[in-house]
Design a binder for these strands. Sequence first.
DNA 1: AACAATCCTGATAGAATCTTGATGGCGGCA
DNA 2: TGCCGCCATCAAGATTCTATCAGGATTGTT
Lengths: 232, 232
Amino acid sequence: MAATAPLVLLIEDEPQMRRFLRTTLRAHDYQVVEAASAREGLAQAAGRNPEVILLDLGLPDMDGLEVTREIRRVARTPIIVISARGQGHDKVTALDLGADDYLTKPFGASELLARIRVALRHSAFPPGTAPQPVFQAGELRVDLVRRQVFRADEEAHLTPTEYKLLAALIRHAGRVITHRQLLQEVWGSNYADQSHYLRVYMAQLRHKLERDPTRPRLLTTEPGVGYRLREG
Amino acid sequence: MAATAPLVLLIEDEPQMRRFLRTTLRAHDYQVVEAASAREGLAQAAGRNPEVILLDLGLPDMDGLEVTREIRRVARTPIIVISARGQGHDKVTALDLGADDYLTKPFGASELLARIRVALRHSAFPPGTAPQPVFQAGELRVDLVRRQVFRADEEAHLTPTEYKLLAALIRHAGRVITHRQLLQEVWGSNYADQSHYLRVYMAQLRHKLERDPTRPRLLTTEPGVGYRLREG
DNA sequence: AACAATCCTGATAGAATCTTGATGGCGGCA
DNA sequence: TGCCGCCATCAAGATTCTATCAGGATTGTT
């Protein structure tokens, strides 16, 4: 998919508000289609296939909640509802009808833009297709969701403590982690000065993960400071 | 499908707020895990695999924004940020770091619940990707609709508890499930430390489903952590 | 610059502890 | 009576902890 500017559909009747939104969005490189009524909005939603829909609930020709329902009958384009009536039960109803977010007037441009980015992010990776968070460095591969560790395509079995230690190193991959910090994250703050634990377990990790445990390339020592997991 | 109550992770230090949230969620049939600190929260997020995370930004031990970042390094579980500081730039930052929604205190229970439903809807599988009502792995086949289990085309009879256990394993197929999590899903949260139940029932499942129960290939043990059902 | 004392790190191995799987009995219930 | 869930016990195995030793780097002193 070409990374063109995302298309935003604006369903809003008040000209003033519409101009504010249009200007803000254009300034941030979005393409904008506008609709001043519910009817027109539904037509545009079907015809233009926008990536996000901004929907004002207070439209003259149809209840905004009804618009949400209609859009959801045919598409799951992210809908961000905008409304002045903030207190009512509308908020809950809109969300339950399929809206993805709800902004109460007045709101700042930066918040609106951030919420649009969230919506786009959601449609970028449909949940089923979500890429697995997998850490990889050299011939080490760690699947953090499945809790599986591979060294050159061979699964390596780690004990709970070994895995926790590796996970802590991965969280800070590339950076140095002090003994104290590692101990806190793996054993808890009461063990912050038991640095001999680290020596034993780092040795075990190296034996299981390094090609040559005596000459570590992934799990390196930063003398006097701590350890580091190579990244990339 | 016996839809089990979704698991919500609560990262919130103020006891009062935590109680409000816990009560609200429990009353609406969510399972709740609580963490009173960022450190604990990160551990729970990794360990318990919640379906939604409620994160208070004002934690004592770590900046909430940092917590968001850390969670996103390993998972894309929906995060709903809760915060008192509504005006700042935090809102935008949190959303851009990967949070999915942002609630400013004070907020109503109904709105919170609606936003949680949105988050769950997002992580639900999109239409085309709907999870197969039939699970299959090796010579094991489970028809989740008819509630029938086959091993190499022979139907196997499972007791209710055995089936619930197997269903829980299937829901997380491929991943490790901790003892605690399994116990909660099958027996309820009051039994979270009765891990001997698991040993008995896992043994029974293995006898009924494995070709060689002493050398399990489908229902494997992750020592010190939990169990895993092989997938594919 | 040389030396020694000290600290840091890695290796190893045994003991203590925890975890797991196997088995069988008990009671409730249809 | 037969099935099922619950509970207790035991042995084997795995894991964690602890202690000890040696090589190397660093520091401080002369």
